[in-house]
Structure formats: C-alpha cells, structure tokens
Amino acid sequence: MKKIAILMGAALIGLSSIVTPCFAEKIVMAGSTTVLPIAQKTAEVFMDENPSMDISVRGGGSSVGITALIDGTCDIADSSRPIKEVEIEKAAANGRDPVAHIVALDGIAVVVNKSNPVSKLSKKQVKEIFIGKISDWSQLGGNPGKIVVVSRDTSSGTFEAFGELVMNKEKVVPSALMQASNQAVSQIVSQTPQAIGYVGLGFMSGDLKSIEIDGVMPSKETVLSGKYSVTRPLFMYSNGKPQGATKEYLDFVKSKKGQELVETQGYVGLK
C-alpha cells in the first residue's frame, strides 16, 4: 500500500508540472525545415526578452505545420510555400482561418562541387539539366562526365519553388537523386565531383560552389533587389488575425530586430 501511495504522489507531482506552464503564455509552432532556423532563433531571443512566454518550435515540413494549424494543434505554422486551395478548404471545414505572414525572403542557389570548373549557367541551361536534356558536363564547357542531378523531394517547399521559378513546372529527370533535406543535398554535392543541386541560401556553405544564373550571383543584395530571380518568400501562418502572444511574437519577427535575426541565419530580411 505504501508503494502505491508513493506512486500516486509521484504521478500527482508529474501531472502538476505538466499543467503549470499553461499559466505562462504558450505558443506552439511547427512546420517547414527551411523556416526552422528563423523560428528557432527568433523564438529564443523573444523568450529571453519576455520570460513569461513559452514558445515550442518543431520542424516536420510545411505540410505538417499547416496540417497542425488546421487541426488546431499549433498556433503558428511555418511554411516555405503558400497554402494550397485544398488546405484552405480543409481549414474552413474545421472552422480555422489561416492568415499568411511573410517573414523572410530566400534565394535558391544552384550549387556544384568545388572542383567543377563551370561557374556560369543560364536559367534555361539549368532547366535543361534538371529535365535531363543536357546530361554531360562537356555540353556546358566543363570536364566530360555524366551530370549527377540532385534535387529535393517532390513534395518539399523548396522543390515546389524551384519547380515554379526554374522548371516551368516541367518534370525533373527520373534519375535525379531526390533528397529529403537541404543538408543531404549539400552533403552529396560536396562529395560528388559531377553533381549539381540546389539549396536555400541559408544552407550555402564553404563546401559548395554556387553558380551564377543569367549573370547574377545569388546573394542577399541580389535577392533583395530582385535581380536574382530564383527567390521565394517564406511564411508563417496564424489562425485568423493574430492575437495576444501570437501577435506579439509575429510583430517581433517582422520588426527591425527580428529581421536582423533572420539575416544572421543566412536568409534575406524584408527591410
């Protein structure tokens, strides 16, 4: 009997510790892995400044975030693509009303292995590489060798943006290596001399060489000025017009300070 009493006591203490944080203002965020670094950094700083706030941030993917928002299991959905028609319908059926907030811009850099002599391509050439029309580096003035096309998974927000901006919605060659994350793409491209891929500007690193597209190098300046054309907005979705803690946080992300944090993560701020 004594043991049971102890167990009950322990369970009560456990329960109360789960319940207590509800008294603090809580925001739950989920969604795109591309937006994740922004969400994490801004949430961290925001919580330091407002100790009564409690923000939890999860990745999972744009659709995971939007689904969670529709189901009411998160307050803010991070997304690297605009919400889809079918999702808006679902949300309406659930009595939810997703409202978009653009929080940053992201350029998609086309990258090759550092040993690759090719450094300039036209948008048309990039497209032809990814649909499989150009398949050897010698066709582009590089060292002869089969081009290894590395792409993001067909359902990722980055793939969708790339598809719209570069591919004109044509299909990626089936032999492309479809990878689940920006990191996986950089890993393969940095390891494979004949590879070409694309990553968000925030994931650019010294192990990769980015390609000039139509004579423009992807950078913060060229993305912001609109010169670099492979650029997309990144979103956070709230349910209805943001209120209370959610509003405060979103205002913070959009503020000058928030946008500076966005820049520290390698993305392009709005101001």
Binding site: G60, G61, V86, M178
Partner: peptide, 24 residues
C-alpha cells in the same frame, strides 16, 4: 550500380510534406 528509391524511403521523405487528405 544505379540509384534506387525504395518504398520506405519514399514514404519517410514525402509524408511530412504531403497535404493531408490529398491524393499524394
């Protein structure tokens, strides 16, 4: 010596981004 995409990999990679209730 060719790359492949096994069923499990396709599910794991795409489930997170497939809109809920859609054909995908």
């Amino acid at each position: 010596l060719e790359p492949v995409r096994p069923m499990t990999a396709a599910i794991a990679a795409e489930m997170g981004e497939a809109p809920m209730g859609g054909s995908h």
